[in-house]
């Protein structure tokens, strides 16, 4: 592993691995956003705000 040119210190992650961690972050944010949107729509149905 030590001869991997992509490896970035001090984590010892390669760029590919860091990219995977990043993809979890992005996916999580997307799911979070979609859930929040849906929750807001449902609240707006029962107790509408903005007239």
């Amino acid at each position: 592993m030590s001869d991997d040119p992509d490896k970035v210190w001090p984590t010892g992650l390669t760029l590919k691995e860091a990219e995977e961690v990043h993809s979890y972050l992005i996916d999580g944010t997307r799911v979070f956003g979609a859930i929040a949107l849906l929750a807001h729509v449902l609240v707006a149905v029962s107790t509408p705000w903005l007239g």
């Binding site: 970035v8 001090p10 984590t11 010892g12 992650l13 760029l15 860091a18 990219e19 961690v21 990043h22």
Partner: peptide
């Protein structure tokens, strides 16, 4: 962002 993640200490991963 990628570079940032790559520099977090392994203790926190």
């Amino acid at each position: 962002t990628l570079r940032k993640i790559a520099t977090i200490g392994p203790r926190y991963l």
